[in-house]
Design a protein around this nucleic acid. Structure first.
Lengths: 229, 229
DNA sequence: AGCAGATTTTAACGACCGGTAAAATCTGCT
DNA sequence: AGCAGATTTTACCGGTCGTTAAAATCTGCT
């Protein structure tokens, strides 16, 4: 694709053991990164191998050299992003057990937002592919997207001492995640409705206010005597 | 496409004024109905004219005879469905002003569910096309989808005497609609998470319980002294 | 320098897409 | 019966899709 600089003698002499492997991993990672960007902007069936190739500055058949199929590439991206989210989600609970529900929830949301702003891809890929078409055109890794919610519920239960029933807790986390993911993952849409700019401080403030307003009472009910968010 | 029964003499004699126009409207409606079904299953860019043709048992170029472009067809479907929803939404408020918040909200949700079960398309089309890709591939009628939420907020304010600020009310309706549309429009996904059957009584019960649990306290705050849902 | 294998590029495949043009058919009318 | 116009079917256009095969290039090694 790009006119490659012919290797000179000097380059050759500087070569060391493992450079080839490093180079290979570099290309693969470049493709993976580009795929993550593209899949964060287009749902699976609208994103194309050629788009990804262009985004990675690579001829598109090279993608098939590193990844057998588009589905396999998507699944790897999805696995990376959901895993990243899962680990981040665990970290957001650190130290929350000692706070009041109000302060705990507030801090949790702040941490959530911090992650979401730096890792657009994770939330976007979920929102873009969550709503599914008929069984005919299921999305690869669909179960992984579904598992997403269940895992956050488990994390919640392990991180915070709770009173409510398991059913109640799953209801709470599902509601929270559904609203949060919609507002952050489909920010263009919802900010548009509210007459705000998608990434703006004002919009984020609105989302937080919203989440606090809706979920603080529910949280107080779930948490034992004093507790977290 | 289908082998057409050659018109016989008897058929000719029974023809009356307006039959041709009726026949034309019939084909157009058949296409429109098929398009509604297809667009309720696939997002705009995944649905195809050929799919719709097959669903309507019609050769696909015939669609272009009645609708100039795919975009125009989609916009007409979208207009019909959002209008249907809008009018239904108004009717759900009838008689609610005299009820308590709890009874009012419960009845409102029941009416909502009744509509959603009979008119899958309206909610599905919205959920499938709400989350947007980059500006590059905007969906025709996107503003109409966005207007959807604003109109329900207005209906709410006109139907029920309220106390809260306009901002608060819009927050309430946006939250409610977002959750309700997700749970009903993407029922395959959420029912799957909860280990239930998408259309089942059990799942609908869960959704209603959920909505009541989240929004009843918020509603009580918005409604004046006594009030509706 | 020249070989072997890894990597990249080029070219092409069959399938589907939205849309168009022209041929075929049907319909209502004289 | 035969014409005119509406409707439907057939054939095709240029374009994009995922994937494959083969050619070209690069790399590390002797």
């Amino acid at each position: 694709m790009t006119t490659r600089s012919k290797s000179t003698a000097s380059e050759k002499t500087t070569s060391f053991q493992g450079q080839k492997a490093a180079q290979q991993r570099q290309t693969r990672d470049k493709i993976l990164a580009a795929a993550t960007r593209v899949f964060a902007d287009y749902p699976y069936h609208s994103a194309s191998i050629r788009m990804i190739g262009k985004a990675a500055a690579v001829d598109h058949p090279l993608i098939n050299y590193y990844f057998p199929t588009k589905a396999a590439l998507f699944e790897e991206v999805l696995k990376n992003e959901t895993e990243k989210y899962y680990l981040a989600n665990i970290s957001w609970f650190a130290g929350l057990a000692e706070l009041s529900p109000a302060k705990g929830l507030s801090l949790y949301i702040d941490r959530f937002f911090g992650f979401a702003l730096k890792n657009r891809a994770a939330l976007r890929i979920i929102t873009l592919n969550l709503v599914q078409a008929e069984n005919a055109m299921i999305i690869p890794g669909y179960k992984r997207i579904q598992g997403f919610f269940s895992r956050t519920a488990q994390t919640f239960m392990q991180a915070i001492p709770l009173q409510g029933s398991k059913r109640e807790i799953k209801m709470f986390t599902t509601n929270f995640n559904t609203l949060a993911i919609n507002y952050l993952g489909a920010d263009t849409y919802y900010a548009g409705i509210m007459g705000m700019e998608p990434g703006s401080r004002r919009y984020l403030k609105w989302v937080k206010e919203n989440l606090m307003y809706v979920f603080l009472p529910q949280l107080k009910q779930i948490v034992g005597g004093q507790g977290p968010g």
